[in-house]
Nucleic acid binder design. Structure first.
Lengths: 213, 213
DNA sequence: ACTTCCGATCCTTGA
DNA sequence: TCAAGGATCGGAAGT
């Protein structure tokens, strides 16, 4: 039994991607005539897959921009997946035009670009992306690197969540414990050499910020 | 006279990108110590550039996740530019981990991803992206006040100094602010699902540890 | 990112 | 009711 369900545009059967998906048995592919995009990984995630030569062609005839604009307007996450090497296509397109198009996608539309080598790799990407779209990572990832074990260093590490390492050291030396640094008022923070009103206020703002579930 | 002004992190001079930018005379590069990201193309458009091998390295040591979180918390448009073929790096990383990382950026974080082959191409991209960012976006975006920092992310970052990411999330949800988490007693910490005596005591021990100047 | 491994936490049982 | 057992989750380390 496949773990995830996705919808593919009927025309994508010619791409070789769906065969690879079927073989892996990770996602179950349903077909439909999608008005925009080629793969629907979740209600809010859409993928437009383009073979390199088609990607280039769609820049020429301006199809790409309309498609992406529509996709952007409809979905929270729009992904353009380019299969093959666009710079290797034998066409008269100037590299600048190519970059212009890619940059437009990235900066103006905020679309992300995934490059793959072939349909098998495309399928592999569709699988992970479907999983991420439907159930997230399945675990939490830490934003911070591995922690030190020595208490003194660990204490400093904890305070570094508020400011830079240099300031953290000074704060800790002044207040004597992590607890006291996090409980200090703006005025008390200002007493520390190197901490001004601005830094102090930023620290307090972060420390007192109300987090709602 | 250069058409556009951008700001680059001082450490980027080693990348070869800035030399290429200087040669082309299209953008004028100003240098600063950027707290996050490598290039500021407009007040709200930030680019984090990573050479393929560094991209992989930053997955291993978890730098990537904090960087992306902070970039997203601060800028309207966050772009991760990967230079070189990540799949070709000779490291022990599994291809699915690599795909997972790229998919995570695109699907979960909603960060825009651009891939280039070398520093010259990166420079070319920076140029056209700068143009798009400064002209194409129109003043309604570039004039808008800077995005309010996402304190929720930063708060989580701070609490992760004490424990893992999952517990950090629960602690914050339970206590409502960083301050309260750091002030909670052992018993109060134990009220949180997933936190037992052992974890609670470890947290308290760290938080109250006396640091001698 | 993913995987594996281990210890902590929680939950169920059954005396 | 409470301890012992097992299932589950979270963190740390390695690729």
């Amino acid at each position: 039994m496949a773990e995830f369900q996705i919808t593919a545009d009927v025309r994508e059967v010619r791409s070789g991607v769906t065969q690879a998906l079927d073989a892996n048995q990770v996602v179950e592919v349903h077909y439909a005539e999608l008005p925009i995009g080629d793969y629907l990984l979740a209600p809010h995630v859409c993928v437009e897959r383009k073979a390199a030569h088609d990607f280039v062609a769609s820049i020429f005839d301006k199809r790409l921009f309309g498609q992406v604009a529509q996709m952007k307007a409809t979905f929270e996450r729009s992904i353009v997946l380019v299969e093959g090497d666009v710079f290797a296509t034998r066409s008269q397109i100037a590299p600048e035009a190519l970059r212009g198009a890619l940059s437009w996608l990235a900066v103006i539309e905020g679309v992300t670009l995934i490059q793959t080598r072939n349909s098998v790799e495309t399928a592999a990407f569709i699988e992970v992306m479907a999983r991420h779209a439907q159930e997230g990572l399945g675990y939490e990832i830490s934003m911070r690197g591995s922690k030190p074990k020595d208490f003194k260093v660990l204490a400093q590490y904890a305070v570094e969540g508020l400011c830079g390492p240099a300031t953290a050291k000074k704060l800790l030396a002044h207040f004597g414990s992590v607890e006291k640094v996090f409980a200090a008022t703006t005025d008390q923070l200002c007493e520390v050499k190197g901490v001004g009103r601005k830094t102090a206020e930023q620290i307090r703002e972060l420390v007192t910020f109300p987090v709602n579930g």
